Amino acid sequence: MKLLTIAVLALASATSFAKTYPITGNTVNCRSGPGTSYSVKKSYKKGTQVSISCQTSGTSVSGNNIWDKTSDGCYVADYYVKTGVNGYVTKKCGGGSSGGSPSGGYCKKVNTAGVNLVAQWEGFVSRPRPDPIGLPTVGYGHLCQKKNCAEVKYKFPLTKTTAKQLLGDDLPKYTKCLAAALNSKPKLNQNQWAALTSWVFNVGCGNAKSSTLVKRLNKGESPNTVAAQELPKWRKAGGRVLQGLVNRRKAEVKLFKTASSKQAYPKCQ
């Protein structure tokens, strides 16, 4: 009886693992990591049935940022896989991590030097008000999503303490974006990671992902050289050069070049 039970359970497990989903695109690339900047390992034709071992977040494709790791060991955009739901259908890759880095082990948090850098250059605002180009912000650079920043859970006027807490709530969005944009070639320490997070926080996720800076890092160029050459180019807002952005880029380059023995990407220490 025990042997029969074990056999039934094994069969059920195998059946569950073998569940497959059809590819909906004509030719869909399966990549070495969860993003369009990763190298192509193979391609699937429309109608190919694939099994999914785990899922993670990565580059957004038509509004869907989920990537499926197939039994072939590569990642395909979930947008092109007909799973029947608009969300996760199995476990997350990397032991439950939802990060977009190759190992899922990137630093989601930013070190103190990075937090202070963002706070310094964003400036403290206790109540929602327009920034230099007219966008309503509050705290340390929180861009309002609703009228009067109604989404903020902290009471107005903010104190510097609650503003730092709000900043801490916001930063993981930008580290996640940065991890999704990078492939496995860049090796960044915590100061380099913090400096780039400050930059992404300032210029926005979309601009960062399409930037020459990210493309050069993904080609394996020296991070210090890339940062020194590319960060200063991001000095305009609303079509004009702002001295505040010129100074901020200098501060980011300085932090980027500050030595640190702790790695932040692709593995957090």
Results as ranks from 00 to 15, higher is better:
K254E: 13
P266A: 13
K187H: 14
F124R: 02
T56C: 08
F124W: 03
F256C: 03
T5Y: 14
Y106Q: 15
R249C: 09
S198V: 04
K91A: 10
N86T: 12
Y80N: 11
K187Y: 12
Y265M: 04
K219T: 04
D78Y: 04
S211E: 04
G25R: 14
T90P: 00
G100S: 02
V214W: 02
S211D: 01
V40H: 10
N86V: 11
V85S: 12
N224S: 12
G220I: 02
T161P: 00
L9Y: 10
L242P: 00
N26F: 10
V85A: 11
L117Y: 02
T161L: 12
K219C: 05
T159A: 04
S210D: 13
Y75S: 11
P223D: 01
A163V: 09
L182S: 00
A251E: 12
T24W: 02
Q190N: 14
A7F: 07
N64S: 09
D131R: 03
G206K: 06
K46D: 06
T15D: 10
W121C: 01
T258I: 12
G105M: 15
S71V: 08
K147T: 15
K250E: 15
G35P: 03
K155R: 09
V89I: 15
V8N: 04
G204L: 01
V200A: 03
S101P: 01
G95H: 07
K46C: 05
F124H: 03
V115C: 00
T225K: 04
T48E: 15
Y106H: 14
V241F: 00
V28P: 04
A77S: 15
L255T: 04
R235C: 12
